[in-house]
Structures are given as C-alpha cells and as structure tokens.
Design a protein around this nucleic acid. Structure first.
Lengths: 250, 250
DNA sequence: CGATCCGTTGAGGTGCGTCAACGGGAGTGG
DNA sequence: CCACTCCCGTTGACGCACCTCAACGGATCG
C-alpha cells in the first residue's frame, strides 16, 4: 500500500510550504467519501475552484491550536490526528481522521486543536471564507456539512462514555472495533485492521498510558481475542467477544 | 427564585402527558438565549406555529436513548441532564442544559441519549419534520442551528480533555468554573454558583464517584478556594487559583 | 555496527474506587 | 409537634486498576 509511505518532507512542516497542485475534483478517488459526495456538477465545479490539494509527510503539522482558522480540509489519503495539550504536556487526542474525513469545523475563528499527520497524507484545502460563501449558495453543501457536524457530535458522545466510564479493556476493544468499522466503511480491509498510529497515540486517544495499551493488547492476544503479525496490523479473532467487552457486558 | 420549584407533576412523566400550552414566542423570556434569538418577525411567527410549550416536574424523562427522535426542544427554564447508560448501569452524563439550551440534534432518527429533568423545567417542543422544513425556508435558522452544532462540538472537545486527561481536582475546578460562566452568560448570578444537580450527577458528568466529588469539594473548602452555605450553592473564593487548577497549572 | 525509537514486560506506587458507617435535612404519619 | 424513615452528602478504611519508573529487545537507519 503506497499511501502510507513517507515522502521525505521535513517533519516540521507549516501551512504554506507544502506543494500545492491543481483541483481535479471530477477524478478525485476520495470524492464519494468526502463532503463533496452529494454535490452535482455545478457545485462540484465551484468547490473545485476554491480547492487546493496538498501533500504532507508523516509527523507534519497542518495547523496548531490557537491558529487563525483560515482553512478547512478534506483528507484524501493517509491518517491525521487532532489533539489538545494541557500546559504540562498531557495530551488528549480528539480524533483520528482518514480518507474522506473533514477537518476544521470550529465554533470561532481559531482552531481549538492541533492537526498533525500520522502517516504521509494528502489533503484538499478550502479557504474558510470561500467555503462559507459557497455554503450560502449551495443548500446541498450546507446540509452535508450540517449532517457532518451532527455525526461528529455523535462520535464525540461515544468518546465521552468511553473516556469517562470504560475500563482499559473496554477502551481497547472499542477502539479496535471502531478502527475496523471505519476502515470497512471506507472500503478498506476491515479485519486484519491496519493501525497506523503508535502506542502513545492510542494511549492519548483513549485516556491511558502506552504501557497499559501494550499490556491490554498482550492480554487480548493471550486470550486469543486478537492476533497480530506486526505492531500495526491486528486481526480481530473473537469479534463478538470483543463487542461484548467493548460494551461492558463482561 | 421560582424556576426551581417543583410543580407537583408525577416523577415518572412521559412525552404525551405534560400540559401543553400555546406558543407565545413574542413574549418568551428565554428567547434571546435560544435558537430563536436571531429570528425576525416572519420566522418567529413560523416557528411559533410549530412550537408547543411544556412543563415537567423534577426527575421527569423527556425521552429515552433509542426513542424515535421526533422532537427537538428549547429549554426555557430549569435544568436538564442528557446521559447514556452502559448495560451494567454505569452512567455518563453528556451534558447539563439550562435556559436557552437546545436539545435533540441527532445524526440519525433515534435519540442517542436519555434526557431527564433535574429540577422542574419548562421547554418548548418542535416536531423534527416541521423544524427541518422551516430550516429549508429560513437560512437564518439554518445558520443558527449549524453554529449551535459547532459550539456543542467545541464543548464536547473540552469534555474529552477533561474526561481523558484531568485529575479529580482539575475536573471539579473545571466544572465549577464552567457552571459559573454559563450562569453568567444566561444573566444569572455567577458567583455563589447555584448547583442544581446532586453529587451523583456531578460524578457521572465528570467520570468520578460521588465520594470523590465530595472529598474534593471538602478539600477545596479546606483550602479556602470555595465556600458553601448549603450543598447546592457554592461560592468561588479563589477564582484565579481555581482556574490554574482547572487548566492543570498546579 | 552503534544509535535511536518503539513496544513490551516487570516491580512498585498511588489516585481514585469500593464498601461501610454516620449524620443532617426533608418528608410523613401519628 | 415529635418520632420515624429515607435520601443524600460526608468521612474513613481499604483495595485495586492503572500509572510510574525502569530495563530490555527488536527494528530501523545512518
């Protein structure tokens, strides 16, 4: 699989440097997964006019918490994490984003999290002002983005339950199943799940430590609930049992 | 203050029983706080036509997780909690809602949490279908709801950091400050903070137990950061220190 | 072939949960 | 008006799930 190679860009990327290419929306492979999916020719042309594609290497920062929220993004390839830091360095990852996911809906004009690539990634970038203008003209786009906000909200609620009330085992099981389900919905293999992020990222996503993530995976492996050839590819063997664990029916 | 009296309705309320009165939007005291705030006369008339007001006693269930999401609500008085349960009874409260807050934006056609009053409350209820039709006709309303979704999303992100990475002390400090800030933004007294929910609700909101909530408040009281006459009224004495604690600068 | 990074494992500590008891306030009934 | 009960908040004693600190080994890369 090519999309997870590292392309040699510096790790310390910033917003203006990445190579910007033209907008070929019509032939966009990710289109059916993105906010562009429901758009008809006219709107697609309009959004193509304001879009710019960009590529980033792994560990590249797209924008930082507090930056002026001038752009929104479609992920067209790769994997991205959104996170916030406490002053002493504790980190909470709000979301992992993959092909088709949308980044940047913020309530005010500043981003309230940092966005960083996990693998090398490609994105489609929209100036916020122009996208908002387009929303005023396209009810289809408006509805799409509203629906997306509601989906994000639902996902956020799932995460509150996970972070506030689930045990380490339940968190890990939930995580694996979610990864699998999302990969499937993107049309990617959903059983040996591909896990592009490292243990520290998983830990900061689930409100755990790397050690606990590691130990829990080891335990699942010992119980034959999962198998793994390498660190980033995990087979869900007892998927129904994992589901029970994830929901706390243990 | 009248809005927190109990009006004698049965605790086990359901959706159809509560008294339904006419729609007097023009004179609605909560209007400037609700989704109706930006609406001009025409739209206000339209939304008034589809709205029904209702009253509930404390501990009344507005709807349950899994119910068909047929209605949306404006809170016009009182306090409401939204929560989800795990099969074994563990509970996560997603949000506390007060006058002006909006309930019911869900991604699909089922509610994914239960809504229950904390105190006696008044609400303004909208049939989902009709509100959606109205959104199609009123860009102002559409934008208002979209903005609201984005605000909710931001709040959800704050909660993820709180639930995933903050200590009990940081959680309690954050909670008190948030309560104070929100009361102020509704034009209510923000320093002796009025805390209408009990310790169990606070615990399930913050991912703690009642005992830990109690102990932490006792500790804050001992450190003279807060004072309290009764259980539901807390004065924030060292507000800057509380802010430091809340952000983890301890 | 050494250095670095990352995942894993072990040993030990601790913040918060669990379990239990108590006390005050509110409601109820006599 | 008082006794009784119930509910809720508080406090204490104790336990444990997860964190912290530390060591190690395999993979990757210069």
């Amino acid at each position: 699989m090519a999309p997870f190679d590292d392309d040699g860009n510096s790790g310390a990327a910033d917003l203006d440097k990445p190579p910007v290419i033209g907008p070929p929306c019509i032939s966009c492979a990710a289109r059916s997964l993105t906010i562009c999916a429901p758009l008809k020719e006219h709107d697609l042309g309009r959004i193509g006019d304001i879009a710019q594609t960009q590529s980033h290497s792994a560990q590249a920062v797209l924008f930082e918490e507090g930056d002026s929220a001038d752009h929104l993004f479609n992920v067209t390839g790769g994997a991205i994490k959104l996170f916030r830091l406490l002053p002493d360095g504790r980190r909470q990852i709000m979301a992992f984003l993959y092909t088709g996911d949308f980044i940047g809906m913020s309530a005010d004009d500043r981003y309230d999290y940092t966005a960083e690539t996990i693998t090398s990634s490609t994105l489609c970038r929209f100036p916020r002002r122009k996208l908002e203008d387009l929303m005023d003209e396209s009810p289809t786009l408006q509805k799409r983005l509203f629906a997306l906000a509601k989906t994000d909200l639902q996902a956020a609620q799932d995460r509150m339950v996970l972070l506030g009330r689930k045990t380490a085992q339940e968190k890990i099981a939930s995580f694996l199943l979610d990864m699998s389900e999302r990969a499937g919905s993107r049309g990617q293999p959903d059983n040996p799940v591909f896990v592009p992020m490292n243990r520290a990222d998983i830990a900061d996503f689930l409100g755990l430590t790397t050690e606990t993530v590691s130990r829990t995976l080891t335990r699942f492996r010992g119980e034959r609930l999962i198998e793994s050839r390498d660190h980033s590819r995990i087979a869900l063997v007892e998927i129904d049992r994992l589901r029970e664990i994830a929901e706390g029916d243990s």
